[in-house]
Design a protein around this nucleic acid. Structure first.
Length: 454
RNA sequence: GUAGUCGUAGCUCAGUUGGUUAGAGCAUCAGAUUGUGAUUCUGAGGGUCGGGGGUUCGAGCCCCCUCGAUUACCCCA
């Protein structure tokens, strides 16, 4: 047997990690519920067909595909061979894979809505907290299995939904102590207007991919990339003007109006951003017209949450409006908008900034030391009575040196040690020692539960 | 998919131009100590030096391949 290992980009979570993750997850969950979202869970795997083509060409490559069972069955050999031939030239083949691990929570949600449109009451608000998988090369803040926390509203076009979602971001990050976060917003409609000015809608992808990198590679490199993507110098100079928009949120709005405000779609997008900006004065909002977001199903407002500047980490959340997502499943006219939190990255950021509260890790409240065979049997029944009163406790079942029992308790962050030896059994009492302060007191067995529940 | 860096004990690492039987600290276990966490002392276990091949009288060290970790690019949470 080889050394035990786990797949690249996956992790085991120890008790302390689970406790810290749960702290984040329960914070997010409670805010979602506060805003009236109901839970949903979907399977780890979806039909490949459901996922393919929804995340762009790059996205398709990153979908984990599940090999069909029975491809070596004699009656399937012909089909399987055909499948391999397709796979070898880079095509996806249902002869080999019919299922895949989900890549995000939004598309499975859209599938769910399309399947259950008759049963759902619209507008439908759901939240979903589940792992997703991407066949990406792992690196800092990037894993192959990670957890997303999504909240979406479908069946409503009102911009107040976006306002609520922005407030959810704010409330969650504030509760977690990430007050230095920024919520970047833009509208795909503004990007679309820019594309119109520069050679038409089919240039949209090229333009957005390039300008999205502005703060990473700088203006000159973006222009180089645009040239590579066959944009003409005139078009690039328009984009340059667009990229040079700067200043406060108000100033940016004023500048964008003169650039794309006379196009219908541009005007619409600006109106959305302006509305959101006006209605969310308490949120750390930053209008950023270079924000694009890779997923190509977004159609309106888009969000991206950035970690506090002192931490080098990409986005810790994102989302936006998708006006015809369910039409991918032949169900038109269900508008939606949603956001997502990247728990794993939020975890890394909070760890780096030391934002986790100290009392997050707690083991049992008390441990009964083992003072001998007869004594431990007696102590066992005392322990069971204590548990019945709701006190979390455990016992050291091996008769070991006291020092060892102490060091066990210390490592497990147990608050109290309870010592019951022959003398204590006789006197119907026990010694309770606070392990952090070292203070020890005698408590009668009768009063033990009261001692802990006071 | 592309590129850089790194793999020596459970952990952190040292290991000289290639040279005897690969070391240290911490941790673990046992004893000094049969009911109170410390300190100190004594002792023990633990390694096919990531794996395979090559060069050499001789490889932890040099060369090739490979696997893993990590970081960056592409893309993204």
């Amino acid at each position: 047997m080889a050394k035990p290992s786990i797949p690249q980009g996956t992790r085991d979570f120890s008790a302390t990690v689970v406790n810290k993750r749960n702290y984040i997850l329960s914070t997010i969950k409670s805010v979602f519920e506060l805003y009236g979202f109901e839970p949903l869970e979907t399977p780890a795997m979806e039909n490949l067909e459901t996922l393919m083509g929804k995340y762009g060409e790059e996205g398709d490559k990153l979908i984990f595909k599940i090999l069909n069972n029975g491809i070596n069955n004699p009656k399937n050999i012909e089909k399987s061979t055909l499948g391999f031939e397709k796979a070898l030239i880079g095509k996806s083949s249902i002869e080999l894979t019919e299922r895949a691990l989900k890549y995000d929570l939004t598309i499975p949600f859209a599938r769910y809505v399309a399947m259950n449109q008759g049963k759902l009451t619209f507008p439908f608000r759901r939240y979903q907290i589940q792992p997703v998988w991407r066949a990406d090369r792992p690196q800092k803040g990037r894993y192959r299995e990670f957890t997303q926390c999504d909240a979406d509203i479908v069946g409503s076009t009102a911009l107040l939904n976006e306002v609520e979602l922005a407030n959810i971001y704010h409330q969650v990050f504030m509760q977690l102590g990430l007050s230095g976060y920024t919520l970047k917003i833009n509208s795909r409609k503004i990007l679309s207007a820019l594309a119109q000015l520069c050679g038409g809608a089919e240039k949209m992808m090229d333009i957005t991919i390039a300008i999205d990198k502005l703060d990473k590679i700088g203006l000159d490199k973006v222009k180089e990339e645009l040239t590579e993507r066959n944009l003409s110098p005139e078009q690039i100079s328009i984009i340059e003007k667009y990229l040079l928009i700067a200043g406060t949120n108000e100033e940016k709005l004023a500048q964008i109006k003169s650039l794309v405000g006379n196009l219908a779609i541009g005007k619409e997008g600006i109106g959305e951003v302006e509305f959101l900006f006006q209605q969310t004065s308490n949120v750390n909002l930053a209008i950023d017209f270079t924000l694009a977001r890779g997923l190509n199903y977004y159609t309106g407002i888009i969000f991206e949450a950035k970690a506090p500047a002192e931490v080098q980490m990409g986005s810790i959340g994102g989302g936006g409006r998708y006006d015809d997502l369910t039409s991918l499943f032949d169900v038109p006219d269900i508008a939606g908008v949603g956001i997502s939190f990247g728990v794993d990255r939020i975890y890394d950021v909070m760890e780096e900034l030391q934002l986790f509260p100290n009392d997050i890790e707690k083991g049992s409240k008390a441990i009964f030391f083992n003072m001998g065979e007869a004594e431990s049997l007696f102590a066992f029944s005392v322990m069971q009575q204590l548990r019945a009163k709701g006190v979390s406790c455990e016992m050291f079942h091996e008769f070991s040196k006291i020092a060892k029992q102490f060091s066990y308790a210390e490592k497990k962050n147990i608050e109290y040690a309870i010592i019951i030896g022959s003398k204590e059994i006789e006197d119907k009492q026990c010694l309770v020692k606070n392990l952090s302060s070292g203070v020890q007191e005698v408590v009668t067995l009768e009063n033990l539960a009261t001692f802990f529940n006071k």
